[in-house]
Structure formats: structure tokens, C-alpha cells
Write a protein that binds this DNA or RNA. Structure first.
Lengths: 228, 228
DNA sequence: TGGTACATCTTTGATTTTAACCATACATCA
DNA sequence: TGATGTATGGTTAAAATCAAAGATGTACCA
């Protein structure tokens, strides 16, 4: 487990705060699939992920899950909800077997803000959050399902190989059926080959084109184009 | 036009910086529909909106515009692209008749970061940006077109009354046709009445239900339900 | 060790839904 | 009298939903 003083945000904090931090942070332990907080909850505490992996998601009126991010320790969760004292915009759930969260009262946080290294670290964390949200917005507003899949294969091959299709679909916010169909197409077009759950990219350019044009049809290589 | 020293981020900055700021900020003037920067552009400058109103949008592969935000002076634009030295994730265009932007080299910004009031103000601005993005994500991933319209009528009646349907549609990222049809339905169901381009809400609860359930059909009041 | 039983994943087909797209008519305004 | 904005009808497209069949994996037990 990550020590509090090793969380980037606190590591550079003036030494005099370290003892105080230890005394003021509540530690909570979680098991897989337990909920840290629900969308809409309010909290007076800054949540610091010290161990494990969580996912943040919204629930649609149809009760489907819209996954926003996955975060690994160490990181800060829901910082803006804490700073602005507004409800959490998403539910936070552990997906690792076990995990740990440190809770720090927001008044303490406000105090530490006077320390320049702390506010800079928090700024850094916020910047990072903006980047994640910005890329999420791009994914959800610009990319088609086909483009999402192509993007994941191209830019997060690791993830793609490691987890099962079910999970991939949920990360991309598409249904498993849709994912299955898209993968079939990509295989049929010889753009990728999957052996033992490991992708091999056989046509890099095609993947780039799919991402750019948002559709498999637009890539000149494809059989489906010929058929038309 | 807003004076630089009146921009929240700079107003509390140590006085010794003010003179330097004046000497180091480039001022650029713009007219309506002119572009401050394009999605994908890189820049070494922090952009400070001093006068006018801009919209930030992405362009889809089909060449349609996905509007992310509208910002009024004074505000900071593209702060994270500047801080992280990454390309702008969206295009910035003036929608007011004229406008002004101040440009501050990011190295200067990095310098000012040592000033706690500055980094706090920047943090505040980032927090705000996260809130905007978070609500955008909600709008685009959770709400249906009907819910988007209901939400705007309910929570931004001002905006709804002030601008024409065309513009509303583009803010909601739906087509004018879709908006027109949804408004017709709402009127037919007697949920709203529009006189002289001013909405009157005649059934508040119905609007809430539409937002929550994402569909007009689900609201018990509706004629369309009876027909089924 | 193998074998049955159950659960979870994945694939495939058919259908439905939402909202875009296209075309055209009507309205408002300057 | 254009021009721009709004309304309406018909069509299409993308992806969800529903249904059901194959596949793979895992646990338990004799």
C-alpha cells in the first residue's frame, strides 16, 4: 500500500504537516465491488486512493453504467466535489480485490492550500483530471463505436490484451454485442488478427483511417467497400 | 473591456507583478466568427479572454460542430493545453461582434505559479473547468434529446428565451429539426406554452420527470401514453 | 484424474429506437 | 423580395435491445 507521504500531492508538503496528516486521515478498507461513494452523495472529505483500482461511473435512466474513468493508487478522487462542496458526479466502486482509501476533511485541505507545493500538486492533479475528462468528451461525442475500438487497439494495446471483451465493452461504453461484431469485421478485413487473446495489428494505416473517418467503410482496403 | 488587473486570476497577484504583466501580455483584437485557435493547434501562450464571448467546439468527421462551452470575459481559455503543453482539444471562435484576448507566455505563467494567490486562482479556474466538463459529459452521455431540451427550459430559461432555436439546437448538439419536433410535443402535451418567444412552464413536474426518465412518454400526463 | 454441471463469455440473427439526414413547405423579418 | 429561421414528412444509419445458441471456464465430486 502507498504511504500517505508518498502520494505525490503530499510528498512535497512541508515536513511539519506529515505528523498532522497521519493523525487526521481516516483509513477505510474496501473489498471488490464495494462502493466508496454514490453519484449524488455529498461528502466533507477528500478521498485519496491509497491502494487498489476503482472505476467511476454514472448510471443512466435505463440503469446502464456509463464508465468515466478507472483510477489506480495513488490518486485523488472527487477533488472538485470536495473543493466546491458539491455532490459527486459519479459513483466510485472498487474493481481490485481489495483497496484502501484515506479520508481527509476538506477544512484541512483548505488549510494545506496555503502551502504552495500542495496547491501546485493539487493544480497538477486537476490538470490531469481535465485532460481525462477532455479525452472522455472526445471519445463520447466524436468517435463512433468502430473508432473507439480502433483507438483502443491502437493506443492501449496493453489494456485490450489484458482484460476480457466484456470489460472492454464497458470501458468503451458500448454493448458486448457491438464489440463482438466490430471485432469480427476487423478480423474479416484482415486489419487485425487475434491469437490467444492477443491482438496483432496487420494494417496499421487502416486503423488510423477508421479513427479519423469514424467508419470502417471509409478505409479503402475494405472488402465491404467493394461490395457496394 | 476588462483590465488585466481585474481578471480574477491576476487581481490578487502581488502588486510587483502588475507592471510586468502589462509589459508582457500581447493584446489581440478579434471580430465576430474569427478564430482564436483551432483544435489541434499548439501554443506557448496562455489565452485570457478580456472582452466578448467565445464558443469552444470540436469538429466531427462529418464536419458538424460539437459545441463544448461558451465563455464570457473575463476568463482563461485553454489553460490546461498551456500548462501541459499539449494541443488545444477544441476550436475557439468569437461569437460576439468584437472581442479581445490577452496572450501571456507560459514561461511567465510558470513563474507566477510561485505566487500562492496566483496558483490558487488558477486552481479555482481549473476546478471550474472540471465542473463545466463534468456537466457536459453528463449532458452528452446520459441525457436524451428530450431531456436536454427539458433541462435547458428548466435550468436555463434565460438562455432559452434570449437566443433563437437555431442557436439553442447548436448548444444542445442536436439538429434544429429535432428541437422543433420536441418543442411541438411539449406544447401539444401542454407542458409548456411559448408566447412571443418566451416560455411559460405549465407543468413543472413533467419536465422533472422527462429529465429523470429521459423520455417524454414516461411522464404520466402525456396524451401519447394514452394512445398506446 | 476425469467428468458432469453450472456459470459466465462470446457470437449471431432479428427487431427496435433515437436522432440524423434530406427535401420541401411555411413563417418571419428586414 | 430575398434571406434566414422554423415546421413537417419521409428515409436512413448506428447502435441498443431482445433472443438464443455456442464456447470457454471452473468448481465440485466420485
Amino acid at each position: 500500500m502507498v504511504k500517505i507521504k508518498d502520494v505525490p500531492m503530499f510528498s512535497n508538503l512541508d515536513k511539519k504537516f506529515h505528523k498532522e496528516l497521519y493523525d487526521n486521515i481516516y483509513i477505510r478498507h474496501f473489498t471488490k465491488n464495494s462502493i466508496v461513494f454514490y453519484e449524488g452523495d455529498s461528502s466533507d472529505y477528500l478521498h485519496i486512493l491509497l491502494d487498489g483500482q476503482v472505476r467511476l461511473y454514472k448510471t443512466s435512466p435505463k440503469d446502464t453504467m456509463i464508465q468515466l474513468h478507472r483510477l489506480n493508487a495513488p490518486s485523488i478522487i472527487g477533488e472538485y466535489a470536495c473543493l466546491e462542496q458539491v455532490p459527486f458526479p459519479a459513483t466510485c466502486e472498487f474493481i481490485s480485490e481489495r483497496g484502501t482509501v484515506g479520508l481527509l476533511h476538506f477544512k484541512k485541505v483548505m488549510n494545506y492550500l496555503k502551502d504552495p507545493t500542495f496547491s501546485l500538486a493539487l493544480l497538477k492533479s486537476m490538470t490531469n483530471k481535465v485532460m481525462m475528462l477532455s479525452s472522455l468528451v472526445h471519445k463520447e461525442t466524436i468517435l463512433s463505436s468502430e473508432a473507439k475500438v480502433a483507438d483502443l487497439i491502437l493506443n492501449e494495446t496493453e489494456t485490450f490484451n489484458k482484460i476480457k471483451n466484456n470489460e472492454i465493452a464497458s470501458i468503451l461504453n458500448i454493448t458486448p454485442e457491438t464489440l463482438s461484431r466490430i471485432l469480427s469485421k476487423l478480423k474479416k478485413e484482415k486489419i487485425i488478427v487475434i491469437i490467444n487473446n492477443i491482438v496483432q495489428i496487420h494494417n496499421l494505416e487502416a486503423l488510423h483511417i477508421i479513427i479519423e473517418k469514424n467508419t470502417l467503410k471509409s478505409c479503402g482496403y475494405c472488402i465491404s467497400k467493394v461490395k457496394r
